[in-house]
Design a protein around this nucleic acid. Structure first.
Lengths: 341, 341
DNA sequence: TTGTAAGCGTTATCAT
DNA sequence: ATGATAACGCTTACAA
C-alpha cells in the first residue's frame, strides 16, 4: 500500500507551489511551457494520479453521466450502451448505468440515485408505463441537462434522439404491400410509448395510401415478448381469413411468431410475408432470415453522449436542437422476399 | 439553481454541531436516537443530499466498482451486467463499465482509467488475447481487490467466478452420444481462454469415456462468430464422412451453422444433432430449438458484485474463497432430441 | 452523548 | 508567470 502522490509532493520536489503544479497539469495558458514539461514528466515519474474527488468537490461537477434504460439485457440496448461507453470514455467522462425494468417506480428510484450521485447530465430511455417526466423535475430545477433517446416523450420540451418511427413503420408496411400483401397484420408494442405508437401510425398511413382497409382485427397491442409472438401465431391460425403479411414492432417477437407458424406448416414468405424491427442479431441467423428495420443503436448512443457533453461544455445549447433524427434502413431478407428484383 | 444544502445548514438550524449531524445521518451508535430522528426529518425537509465527493475525499474510498468486459453487446454479458447493476444499486455502489473489445491493449487502457477513477474494486472478464494479468499489477500493489468472472485465468492467484466448463462440455458431448451420435464435431473458441479450452477438454473426455476416437479433423478452433458458423457448415458439407453430432461453444455460432446446413437440406437432428452453449435467447426461437447449456449470467453478475462488496466490508476475505463455481444446466431441446425419453 | 478542529487534494481568487 | 490562501463538504480523533 504505497502512499498516494499529490500535487504537494510534486511541488515540494520541484520547489514550486501546488497552485503552479495544478495549473500546469491542467494546461493553464499562463504557465511557462517549459515548467509545464518539467512538471508533467515529474508527475509521470512519481506515478501521480489526480484525485477526482478533490477536484469534483472543488469544481462542483462530477464528469459523470447518468444513464437509465428500460432493460440492460436487450441486444439493441447493449449496442446503444457500447456507443455511449466509447464516446464517454474518449472524453474521460464516467457513465453510471441503471435499469428501470420497465417500471416507473424503479425509474423514479433510479432518478433519485442519479441525482444524489450528482451526475452532470442524464440520458434516459423511458419505461413502458412512464407517462410524465415529473420525477425528473429535480434535474430541470437544478439546470442539469437531460436527453431522451429511443423511448422518448414527444410533446415534452426535452431534447430527444430517435429515428422517424412513423416513416419506418410506413416503409415496412409499404414493402409488404409491394410484395403483394393485401391483408397485413401489425403486432405493436405499448402505444404509451411513441416508438410503438408511431410505427403503428406509419402502418396505418401506408395502408391508407395504398387503398387498403384498416382492419382493427388485424392489430394486436402487446408487450412484444416471446409469448406475445406465440399468441399472435395462435391468433393467426384461428382466423377465418388469415393475413398474408405481418409487421411486428420487434424482431425477437417476430421470430417467435414465425417459428410457431412454420411449425404448423405455414410457409414464409409464401403464405405470410414478415417484417420485424430493430435488426437484432437473430434476424440474420433465423431461417428464413428476417426482413427488418435496421436501427443505429451504436450511433444513437454515441450521439446522445456527444450531444450531452457538447452541451455541458457550452459548445451547443441543447434547447436549440430539440430533436435529433437518425437514419434507419429497411433491410430486405428472405422472410418477405417474394419477387426477384 | 437553488443553493445546495449541507450538514452545516442543518446543524445551524438545529443548534447542533456539524459532527453530530454527520454522525446522525450515518447512523452512528453513539447518537441519541431522538436527535437522529430530528436530524433525519430536518434533512428530508430541507432537501439535503450528501456530497459523495466530499465524503469519498475524506474517507479515501469511492463506493465505485469498475467492470471490464470483452463486449457490451452480447446477450450473455448484458444479463451479467443486469445482475451486477441490481446488487450494486441495492448496496449503493456505483458501477463504471467499460469494454475491451477483445483486445489486450484496450483492456490495459481500461484498467488505467479504472485505476485513475480510484475504483474500490474491479470485476473483469478477460479479452480473448490477454495472457497475463500484469496490467492489473497496480491494483494488486495497492491492495485493490479484483475478481475475474467467466473469462478467467485459472492458474493465477485471483478469485474467479465460473461454471465448471469441463463438466459442461462433457455433459453436452455425452448427451449427443446418448442420442446415438458416433462422430461428433466440436467448434471451439480461442483456447487461450480457459472457458473454451475447458469445454474442449470436456468434449475429449466424454469421447474417451465412451470409447469414441478423438479425431482432430472434427475439431475447429474459431472465434465463434457468425462467419465461423457458416464456415463450419461449409466444412461439414465438404467432408467425406460428415459428423452426426455437433457441439458448438456458443449458441449464436451454432445457430448460424445450423441455418446454413438446413438450407442445404441437412436434417436436424436427424442427420446431425446439435448442442450449443450459453442459452442465448435465440436458442428458444430458432427452428428447431437449440439444445444448450444454460449459463447463469444474472446470478454470476450478482455474485461477483456481492463477493466484492463483502470483501470490501471485511465480511469475507476474498483470498480464502478462490474459485466460486456456479451451477449450469443442460437444456435439451429439439436440435438434438432423437428419442422420446 | 455531543462538540472542536484538523484534514482529505484540488482549484479559484487575489496578490506579487 | 508564479505564490499564498481560502474554500469545497464531509469525517474522525480527541475533548468535554
Amino acid at each position: 500500500m504505497e502512499k498516494e502522490v499529490t500535487i504537494y509532493d510534486i511541488a515540494k520536489l520541484l520547489q514550486l507551489s501546488p497552485a503552479t503544479v495544478s495549473r500546469a497539469l491542467n494546461d493553464h495558458p499562463a504557465i511557462n511551457s517549459n515548467t509545464k514539461d518539467i512538471i508533467a514528466s515529474k508527475a509521470q515519474e512519481m506515478g501521480y494520479r489526480s484525485n477526482r474527488f478533490a477536484s469534483n468537490l472543488r469544481r462542483q461537477r462530477t464528469s459523470t453521466i447518468g444513464v437509465i434504460v428500460p432493460r440492460l439485457d436487450s441486444a439493441f440496448m447493449s449496442t446503444v450502451l457500447a456507443g455511449m461507453e466509447k464516446v464517454a470514455n474518449e472524453a474521460s467522462y464516467n457513465l453510471i448505468i441503471s435499469q428501470s425494468l420497465e417500471s416507473v417506480r424503479k425509474e423514479m428510484a433510479n432518478a433519485k440515485t442519479m441525482f444524489d450521485s450528482r451526475v452532470d447530465g442524464l440520458l434516459v430511455s423511458l419505461a413502458s408505463d412512464t407517462d410524465t417526466l415529473d420525477h425528473f423535475d429535480t434535474f430541470f430545477r437544478k439546470g442539469i441537462p437531460m436527453i431522451l433517446f429511443d423511448r422518448v416523450m414527444p410533446q415534452q420540451n426535452c431534447t430527444s434522439i430517435v429515428i422517424d418511427n412513423v416513416k419506418a413503420g410506413y416503409d415496412a408496411t409499404a414493402h409488404l404491400i409491394g410484395q403483394g400483401c393485401q391483408r397485413i397484420m401489425h403486432v405493436a408494442g405499448s402505444i404509451r410509448r411513441s416508438v410503438y405508437a408511431d410505427r403503428l401510425k406509419g402502418y396505418k398511413l401506408a395502408l391508407l395510401d395504398h387503398n387498403l382497409p384498416v382492419d382493427d382485427s388485424l392489430l394486436r397491442i402487446t408487450n412484444l415478448t416471446r409469448q406475445d409472438g406465440l399468441d399472435a401465431a395462435a391468433a393467426i391460425r384461428r382466423m377465418d381469413t388469415p393475413p398474408d403479411g405481418l409487421f411486428v414492432a420487434s424482431d425477437f417477437c417476430a421470430v417467435s411468431c414465425m417459428g410457431a407458424l412454420m411449425q404448423e406448416g405455414v410457409s414464409i414468405p409464401g403464405d405470410l410475408a414478415v417484417v420485424g424491427f430493430n435488426d437484432d442479431p437473430v434476424a440474420q441467423v433465423i431461417q428464413p432470415s428476417l426482413t427488418t428495420i435496421h436501427y443505429p443503436g451504436q450511433e444513437m448512443g454515441e450521439i446522445a453522449v456527444q450531444s450531452l457533453i457538447n452541451h455541458l461544455n457550452g459548445r451547443l445549447r441543447i434547447s436549440t436542437t430539440n430533436t435529433i433524427l437518425l437514419n434507419y434502413e429497411l433491410i430486405v431478407r428472405n422472410s418477405s422476399r417474394r419477387t426477384e428484383s
